[in-house]
Design a protein around this nucleic acid. Structure first.
Length: 164
DNA sequence: GCCAACGTTGGC
DNA sequence: GCCAACGTTGGC
């Protein structure tokens, strides 16, 4: 009964994430319009590692608007692909070009994200700060700037109760 | 536009 | 391996 414990298996564990984007550059409306988009331009190792090592197709993503008025959580996306090399790192004309990377040994990996929904109203950062059940979120930790963050299941369900 | 907090780079 | 200088993030 039960079989072997699936040590290291990550097949059926739900995972949740938060990904930041500036709506002036690429917001939830843009994602809705295009449907699916490569999450390119990430040049932070911790954020890259989440995409490369931890994300699975179907993981749910909070789409966060940074540098916005107000900043906040705007909608939901999902991980749409396995990770693969970010093509912008190879293009000398691209602002995300990385001369230290190569096609043989790519440094930066990304996933595509797919639109799921846009909330009827954005949940402002201030309301996340004000909610004790969300105090654990990386988003509201002092000094936290990571553009891709894991979200716990309890944080996720708290948010889903608030958001529509 | 300001600037605190971080991450990265590169000289030593 | 240290750490100062520099660049970036992102709220305000």
């Amino acid at each position: 009964m039960g079989g072997k414990p699936r040590v290291g298996a990550r097949t059926d564990q739900k995972r949740f994430w938060l990904m930041k984007s500036e709506p002036d550059v690429f917001g939830i409306d843009d994602l809705q319009r295009v449907g699916q988009e490569p999450w390119d331009g990430v040049r932070n190792y911790q954020a890259r590692n989440f995409m490369r090592d931890k994300m699975q197709i179907g993981d749910r993503v909070l789409f966060y608007h940074s540098n916005a008025k107000p900043p906040g959580i705007a909608g939901i996306a999902e991980v749409a692909t396995e990770s693969y090399p970010d093509p912008t790192q190879f293009d000398p004309n691209n602002k995300y070009y990385d001369p230290k990377s190569s096609e043989e040994a790519p440094r930066w990996m990304l996933v595509d994200v797919r639109f799921v929904k846009k909330f009827k109203s954005l949940l402002p950062l201030q309301e996340v700060r004000d909610n004790p059940a969300l105090a654990t979120m990386a988003l509201v930790q002092k000094g936290s700037r990571l553009s891709i963050q894991p979200v716990t299941e309890s944080e996720w369900s708290t948010l889903m109760d608030i958001l529509d």
